[in-house]
Amino acid sequence: MSTLLEVSGVSVSFDGFRAINNLTFQIGAAEMRAVIGPNGAGKTTFMDIITGKTKPDSGSVLWGEKSVSLLSMSESRIAQEGIGRKFQRPTVFEDQSVADNLMLALKKSRSPFAVLRFRPSSEDHDKVAELADRIGLSAALHRKSGELSHGQKQWLEIGMLLAQDPRLLLVDEPAAGMTPAEREHTTELLVEAAKTRAVVVVEHDMEFVRRLDCKVTVLHEGSVLAEGSLDHVTANEQVIEVYLGR
């Protein structure tokens, strides 16, 4: 299994507080990975580093077959490289329709002049319709996304991620605030996605992680505490102490 993303020896501190401490992490090209850890373990900062929002003090982040460094790239450049991110609270463009949101995310040239000339072809419309179908929002395609329910917004955001056709998906607590049925659907979406690409899911909910049925990485105080199957890590005493024991 080829390595898609390799994070090694990364540290970052804010005003003396070490948010990430010598973190090392790898993920393959088509792999599902759950990242768990208590509050303040550095999960969000970890994602910030990969997506270019935070620059680490030391360490390297290498990407793809050619192992290019992501550290010197801007957020938008990293996204164009094929890394998609979903935030914890759904952030969709509420003033625009579901179709517009998906169209915005569709993998196309991102340069302003290309976008200015862009007029959607029928394939693009088909693709949007197909994505809407996958996330169960076909009926709401022309509604403003601000009118959607919380769960629908989460799906729309996942839909937007899929529209981007990224090679790596970073998903922050996708199941938060969802009904059991909605969770079911979300799990399906993610598992389906992980067949063709790498998916990193940050999650609190153990039940949800169990359903994903994948390798788990436990973060604690900015570095990896344990890694392996869920059963393996939940058996780890240290993990029980810092996380599950609470």
Partner: peptide
């Protein structure tokens, strides 16, 4: 068109637009 969609998206949440791969600055 889509350009309008992008700039309104920038107005509402520019960080999110950035993570979609658009160069907000441009």
């Amino acid at each position: 068109g889509k350009f309008g969609s992008v700039i309104r998206a920038i107005r509402d949440d520019e960080a999110r637009v950035r993570f979609l791969g658009y160069s907000v600055e441009a």
